[in-house]
Amino acid sequence: MNVPVKVVYRNLLPQYKEGVQGEVRLLSGKLDKFHPDIISCRIVVEMPHKHHHEGNLFRATITLNVPDKQIVVSREHPLSQIRENIYVAVRHAFDDAIRQLEEYDLVKSRDVKDHDLIPHGVVSKLFARQGYGFIEGSDGREIYFHKNSVLDGFNKLKLGIAVRFEEEEGEKGPQASTVKILRTAPTYRRRH
């Protein structure tokens, strides 16, 4: 990468920091392939706090500044197999950053409109105590999501709120791997 990469480690034991440091440097070096005009890059790898009832989480947050835009991605993974999950959080954050850099390039080159990039819908069912819900997509399909896939915080969700999501195939059908709350309403009307 042509610009210096600032890496911050928070609340990590030294052995975890040493283990993931090489992975962070390797992955950050590949970002130039997807967008050569990165102005700055900051990466935070942390274990934010201890959840005594839910287990601990690892979080990787990447902040990229490119001309006319700041890209911020954050991924969390539960602490069940320590070494594996810290790497998963880091890799998924870099995958998200790369995807957003590619989308930024498409929009900048005007090959695609910004609102066409990621599917959107509304939260149609919410099971707060169990930590999951469903999104009704713009195509009318119902997509499952888990609280860990909500980037803005699961507790901020309400029925009918507009979201964008990344879809993948789960064990029982389609599911959202990431869910982002939209600040504006979607361009379609919800069916009753």
Rank of each mutant, 00 (worst) to 15 (best):
P67W: 00
D68Y: 02
K69L: 11
K69R: 13
Q70A: 03
Q70I: 14
Q70W: 11
Q70F: 06
V72G: 01
V72F: 04
V72Y: 04
V73E: 10
V73D: 07
V73Q: 04
S74W: 00
R75Q: 14
R75C: 10
R75N: 10
E76F: 00
H77A: 13
H77W: 07
L79D: 15
L79T: 01
S80P: 00
S80M: 08
Q81R: 11
I82V: 05
R83A: 06
R83M: 13
E84C: 00
E84L: 11
E84I: 09
E84R: 14
N85D: 13
I86P: 06
Y87F: 11
A89F: 02
A89M: 05
R91S: 14
R91Y: 00
H92V: 05
H92G: 15
A93S: 06
A93D: 03
A93K: 07
D96M: 07
D96V: 02
D96Q: 08
I98D: 04
R99G: 08
R99E: 09
Q100N: 13
Q100L: 08
L101I: 06
L101C: 12
L101T: 10
E102N: 10
E102K: 11
E103F: 10
E103H: 12
Y104I: 02
Y104M: 05
D105H: 04
D105A: 15
L106D: 10
V107H: 04
V107R: 06
V107W: 09
K108Q: 12
K108T: 12
K108M: 14
S109A: 12
S109H: 14
R110P: 01
R110I: 11
D111N: 02
D111M: 05
V112L: 15
D114M: 09
D114Q: 03
H115K: 15
H115T: 13
H115A: 12
D116H: 14
D116W: 13
L117Y: 08
L117A: 03
